[in-house]
């Protein structure tokens, strides 16, 4: 749920990185934290991680600067991907304005991707949000592993699996190297801010 401060002409919105466990959500945020230092307005906070698994969530605050005269702030969150943390995912998703769905390109994770997308749809529905209407982009992560000879799904196959109906903007990426991370975020922010503008006309006020 975006927060508007009309007096100070400030808008704050929430973008959540969603996806199956170990797909690279935290790695996305870590790359953003390193690569977009100018826009980062605080530390990246990782709440309760076991090894490098997220048990609660990661949080990264960004400041996009002035857009149409409004100071735009973004809160980036990740959810824990493991199936058993459903209630935590739901809580983190509360008040979401835009979603980056990070899909794992590894062949062995095909089913987990589809289950995670279904889980997202259900959790959004519980907040009366429609997955077809909310700003969402899809990222096909771990593309760099193709070079290592690890079996990956093709982006076309993943499009069929995950994006046939959604028809969301999608990006091949490697959060590890940073390839495609910026494009994914930029696309999601564009969609989110346009959506909020349609809803609230914030840029004209």
């Amino acid at each position: 749920m975006a927060v508007f401060n009309l007096k100070d002409r400030e808008i704050q919105c929430k973008v959540v990185y969603y996806g199956p466990g170990r797909c690279g959500k935290t790695t996305n945020l870590e790359y953003i934290f390193k690569a977009y230092k100018k826009q980062i307005k605080g530390d990246m906070v990782s709440i309760n991680t076991e090894g490098d698994r997220t048990l609660f969530f990661d949080f990264l605050p960004m400041n996009l600067g002035k857009i149409n005269g409004c100071d735009v702030k973004v809160q980036l969150f990740t959810v824990p991907g493991q199936v058993q943390y459903k209630s935590t995912r739901k809580l983190v998703l509360k008040g979401v304005d835009g979603i980056v769905f990070v899909a794992d390109s590894l062949d062995v994770r095909r089913e987990k991707n589809m289950l995670a997308l279904k889980d997202l749809q259900q959790n959004l529905k519980s907040y009366d949000l429609n997955i077809f209407k909310i700003p969402i982009v899809i990222q096909y992560n771990k593309r760099d592993l193709e070079k290592e000879g690890i079996p990956l799904m093709s982006c076309e196959k993943m499009e069929k699996d995950l994006n046939r109906q959604l028809k969301a903007p999608s990006f091949a990426a490697s959060a590890f190297s940073g390839q495609g991370v910026g494009k994914t975020l930029q696309s999601c922010l564009n969609l989110t801010l346009k959506h909020l503008h349609k809803q609230f006309n914030w840029a004209d006020k």
């Binding site: 749920m1 927060v3 906070v45 709440i47 309760n48 076991e50 090894g51 698994r53 048990l55 609660f56 949080f59 809160q75 493991q82 058993q84 809580l91 509360k94 008040g95």
Partner: peptide, 24 residues
């Protein structure tokens, strides 16, 4: 991992962050 996952006590500092971030 399964054993460690059950230990979810967080520090007061973290609890403060949780309170702030999840309170509109």
């Amino acid at each position: 991992f399964e054993k460690e996952s059950k230990k979810t006590e967080t520090s007061p500092g973290v609890n403060k962050i949780i309170k702030n971030l999840f309170s509109t």
